[in-house]
Each structure stands twice: as structure tokens, then as C-alpha cells.
């Protein structure tokens, strides 16, 4: 059970959250101008790194807000979480 720091509510149990996958995939402004391959890249291709991963989570059983997080996919430890539209703190901001 991961302990996840919601940037609005603080530390809560993983069971309150939904995972949203890779963060920072902006929807193309003009999809019509993209080639099929470029569109496929947006739709399906993922970094899936072994190590630090920027991802989205939703505090579904709490404030229902989506937020960004950086987490190590090997140790599962969060290094920081931040609100959508804000910049992440430059240092680790999660206690656990």
C-alpha cells in the first residue's frame, strides 16, 4: 500500500487514488495536421522508464483532483507531487 501525498489533502493511502499513467502528454493542438504515425505516438507510445517517472494520479476517493507526481518505478518511492499547472518543487517534497 503506497502512501501518496495529494498536493491538496496530504498523505493518504493508495486505495484512495486512481492511477493515470504518464504525465505531460499534451493533446496536439491541431490533430488534423498530424500524420497517422505522429497521432499514434500521441495515442499509444509511452516512455515507461525504469526509474523516475512523471505520472498523473487522481485522488478519486478524496478531493477528486488530478495531480502530477514523480515516482521511481523500481523502488515505487515518490519524490514529489504537484498540482496541475504548477511547477514541481526542485527538491524532493515527499516524506516517506
Amino acid at each position: 500500500m503506497l502512501l501518496i501525498k495529494c498536493p491538496w489533502c496530504g498523505n493518504r493511502a493508495e486505495s484512495e487514488f486512481n492511477y493515470g499513467g504518464e504525465a505531460g502528454i499534451a493533446r496536439p493542438a491541431n490533430p488534423d495536421t498530424l500524420t497517422d504515425a505522429e497521432w499514434a505516438d500521441y495515442l499509444f507510445m509511452r516512455k515507461n522508464p525504469k526509474g523516475l517517472h512523471q505520472e498523473q494520479w487522481n485522488h478519486a476517493q478524496g478531493c477528486r483532483r488530478w495531480f502530477n507526481a514523480e515516482r521511481d518505478t523500481v523502488t515505487y518511492r515518490f519524490t514529489r507531487t504537484w498540482r496541475i499547472g504548477e511547477a514541481p518543487s526542485s527538491t524532493r517534497d515527499v516524506d516517506s
Binding site: M1, E14, E55
Partner: peptide
Amino acid sequence: DSYNGYGQRGSFH
């Protein structure tokens, strides 16, 4: 488990 992970372990729930 819902999240990306290379840890060969998951959560107890």
C-alpha cells in the same frame, strides 16, 4: 497493480 512498476512486487490490498 495500477501503476507502472519494475519492482516485482505490488500492494497488499
